[in-house]
């Protein structure tokens, strides 16, 4: 198991390396010169040249990648071209706001799993049918549309919740979080409840559930220990993947709700060719996604003794 964990973490680092390098290379093909952005249109050619030299922009892509990773190891992600502040400290400010949004995964877990399980247990019943229709509708509507309607309903019409900003203090922050997390999370509650329903139905038909019932084990215990425990690994994989998608929805939702966060940061940075910030946000989100999938993989192996043995 420990061997497998080391192996998975090794792979995780390689994915981060590969993803960042790929983006670094791709960014070179985007038209526009960072030196222009930083120094403005009236800068002299000498000034621009000096800046290019300082940022290694004249070297080959691979040399730039090398300098980038050397910087990463030293905790240096370069300097924001517009504000001249270290990218690391900008990220440190912005990441918490996005991390809060990703907490909508909690919402997804706490609602999606029970809804899916209950629907599977009462397959074909009213709850199953209604939750099925609602889930598919939620999957079909993109987060931005859900977000807009949430604002229209809860902020404009009912005036219950704030439409924009991140809020201050604990209560304020929480209030400002509700609509954005719902906008991101509802789609995934739909997905997860459907997937949980399918895997619970599959497990319910397995022979060992019949054995457990034949021995009179109380039904709620059967569901907990003999159904969910077996169905859970598939769900955890989905949750791991969903974190990546939630992070990408964060870009849209942060713009829509005018919240700070790395989604908004990345968007602004791309528009203004602010390469160091683009690279910083990409690195942060890649690390985050790879971390989430690695954790879900390891949890899976931990939960399923069969794959634990196969991988030890």
């Amino acid at each position: 198991m420990i061997g497998y964990a080391i192996q998975r973490i090794g792979v995780a680092f390689m994915i981060i390396l590969l993803a960042t390098t790929t983006l670094f290379i791709m960014i070179q093909f985007v038209p526009g010169d960072p030196a222009n952005v930083m120094l403005g249109p009236r800068a002299t050619p000498e000034l621009k040249e000096a800046l290019r030299e300082r940022l290694h922009l004249n070297d080959s892509v691979f040399v730039q990648v090398y300098y980038f990773f050397v910087g990463v190891l030293q905790g240096d992600l370069g300097v924001d071209l517009t504000s001249n502040r270290p990218v690391v400290s900008i990220l440190a400010e912005q990441v918490p706001y996005t991390a809060m949004l990703v907490l909508s995964i909690l919402l997804v877990t706490l609602l999606g799993i029970p809804i899916g399980t209950y629907a599977a247990m009462h397959r074909g019943g009213a709850f199953d049918q209604i939750s099925g229709v609602v889930a598919v509708s939620l999957i079909a509507v993109p987060p931005i549309v859900i977000g807009l309607y949430l604002i229209l309903l809860f902020s404009v019409q009912l005036k219950w919740l704030p439409a924009i900003g991140a809020g201050e203090g604990f209560g304020g922050t929480l209030k400002h979080l509700i609509l954005p997390t719902l906008a991101i999370g509802l789609t995934w509650i739909g997905y997860v409840s459907r997937l949980v329903r399918a895997s619970v139905i599959e497990v319910l038909m397995q022979n060992h559930v019949k054995t457990a019932r034949a021995f009179g084990i109380p039904e709620n215990r059967v569901i907990r220990r003999y159904v969910l425990r077996v169905a859970l690994p598939a769900t955890i994989t989905i949750l791991g993947v969903s974190i990546g998608f939630i992070l990408s929805s964060a870009v849209i939702v942060e713009i829509l709700f005018a919240r700070p966060g790395i989604g908004k940061l990345a968007y602004d940075a791309v528009i203004s060719r602010n390469y160091p910030v683009v690279m910083g946000t990409v690195l942060a989100s890649t690390v985050f996604i790879v971390f989430a999938t690695t954790v879900s993989d390891l949890l899976n192996v931990l939960l399923d003794p069969r794959s634990r043995d196969a991988n030890s």
């Binding site: 022979n207 060992h208 019949k210 054995t211 034949a214 009179g216 220990r225 003999y226 939960l303």
Partner: peptide
């Protein structure tokens, strides 16, 4: 009431031993 009888007074050995036990316990 059936629950009380099952496993105590009537017990059951299933068809396929390969799948009769919970794989994760």
């Amino acid at each position: 009431q059936r629950q009380d009888i099952r496993g105590r007074e009537i017990s059951y050995v299933s068809q396929d031993p390969m799948s009769a036990l919970n794989p994760s316990l």
